[in-house]
Every structure is written in C-alpha cells, then in structure tokens.
Design a protein around this nucleic acid. Structure first.
Length: 131
DNA sequence: AGCTTGACCGACC
DNA sequence: TGGTCGGCCAAGC
C-alpha cells in the first residue's frame, strides 16, 4: 500500500522507544531524562544479541532523550518527563503545573510564595512496574 | 573531519 | 539554595 502522507525524514529507532517509555509513566508519577536513558540502556543490553550486524550500538544518553522530547514531546505525556533536579520545563511551567495539580504529583514545598514549585523527585519517581 | 549545540547529570564548592 | 565544571553523545553546520 502507498503512503497518503509523507512520513518526513526517517527518525532513528530510539525515538519510538523513548516515546513508548514516556507513555507508560502512570499519572501522578515522573521519570527523569536520565531514568529513561538508563531504562533503554538496560533494554539494549538484554537484546544485544539481536543487534543488526554492521550497525554500531547506539548509546542513548539523557541528552538524546531530551532531544526526542523536544521534537516529539507533544506525542506523549511530556510533563511526566522532567529534569533530575525537579525544576519545571522553562516556558511550560503553567501547563505542567496544571497537570501536576490534577494528577496529584508530589511537589516540594516552595520556599517563597511567588517562586515556581519543583517536583519532589524522590517521591514522584517511577521505577517501573511497582508503585 | 572538526566544532558547536542541546527539554542532561553528578560532583563539587 | 544556588552556581560552575567536566563529561556525555547524537545532530547540525
């Protein structure tokens, strides 16, 4: 069958895997860019025997996860992927905060009133299957 | 082929 | 609590 719409430039395979992991994060929980990178790295190690010959092993680091979210974040619950220090994504603080309030995401108590809150990463971090 | 740029991270001060 | 620094690695130029 023929494409009705040009899919655009070919995206590297890890893009879909990043978005997959992001989509699994439960409401009210978060993962850091580094968490997702580590998760994919573990997944890669499990299937290293399936690697295509001649294909260099692609290491996906936190910065690559960040790139994927920057380009395709709108296709996933982007507000559940945060920086390790829990600071909100610059430029999206208000929208993210609305989600956190609705989902009951653990936030750190703010020092002063007009300071933007931060995620309580220790509380909100999602490790996988467990709660 | 080399240099710069990121929705990053951890250590350190 | 907050700033700098070095390391990280794919992409872009």
């Amino acid at each position: 069958m023929s494409e009705q719409h040009d899919p655009g430039p070919p995206a590297p395979p890890y893009v879909d895997r990043v978005l997959d992991v992001a989509a699994r994060i439960p409401a009210g929980r978060i993962m850091t860019y580094g968490d997702i990178a580590a998760w994919l790295e573990e997944e890669r190690r499990e299937h290293e025997d399936l690697g295509l010959p001649g294909e260099p092993p692609r290491r996906v680091g936190p910065r690559q996860v960040g790139r994927v979210m920057a380009l395709h974040g709108d296709e996933a619950p982007w507000w559940r992927v945060v920086r390790a220090d829990g600071t909100l994504l610059p430029g999206h603080e208000v929208r993210a905060l609305a989600h956190y309030h609705e989902e009951g995401t653990p936030l750190r108590p703010t020092a002063s009133e007009d300071h933007v809150p931060r995620i309580d990463v220790r509380e909100a971090r999602w490790h996988g299957v467990e709660d």
